[in-house]
């Protein structure tokens, strides 16, 4: 498989999994407002892809999908997409650091990013006099998303087999590869 075909295949896979992550919260499984808040699967998935294969999730695709998620999930239109795009660019810039730091660092980074994004969203909503999310909902989103994140990573690792450049292919001390 030439690298070019592989890249496009990865992009299609990203698109497919992202659409799935947007569709899953829409499942009509019960309409009682007392249940837990849904995890932000799309954010987790995008984060995990960007750490492993940043080229599979190009900027424009992430932006369009995030906006679609905003529209379909009845969120304030465009705000969460804006924050997701900013986060995606930050992860893309630091993806090597995250990948080599191991899974615990990645998980902590995701937790931090999610909390900051949710707080930033509430700040935006507050400043524009829109209704803000209550604190317990935010905590629920953080907890459920954090629980789901390892499963997303396992799914990518074992089922889609996206692992990023493995450490074996890194140049060693003398600059040799492999």
């Amino acid at each position: 498989m030439t690298p070019k075909i592989r890249l496009w295949l990865l992009r299609v896979l990203f698109l497919g999994t992202a659409l799935l992550s947007i569709a899953i919260p829409l499942l009509p499984l019960g309409f009682s407002p007392d249940r837990l808040a849904m995890p932000d699967l799309f954010l987790g998935l995008t984060f995990a892809w960007l750490v492993r294969e940043p080229k599979a999730a190009p900027l424009i695709l992430v932006a369009v999908l995030a906006l679609l998620a905003d529209a379909v999930l009845m969120r304030p239109f465009g705000l969460w997409a804006l924050l997701v795009v900013v986060l995606a660019e930050l992860v893309r810039m630091n993806n090597r650091l995250l990948r080599e730091g191991g899974f615990l660092i990645e998980m902590l980074a995701f937790l931090g990013a999610l909390v900051i994004l949710l707080l930033a969203q509430n700040l935006f909503l507050f400043v524009t006099f829109s209704g803000t999310y209550p604190l317990n909902t935010l905590v629920e989103i953080v907890i459920t998303s954090l629980i789901c994140y390892p499963f997303i990573v396992l799914f990518l690792h074992y089922i889609i087999r996206v692992r990023g450049p493995s450490s074996k292919n890194q140049p060693d001390r003398l600059g040799k590869v492999g």
């Binding site: 009509p28 019960g30 309409f31 009845m74 629920e140």
Partner: peptide
Amino acid sequence: EVITDSGSPFSQSGL
């Protein structure tokens, strides 16, 4: 038929 949930805690609605 209710086909989807709103999927967000921001609004209690269905499609």
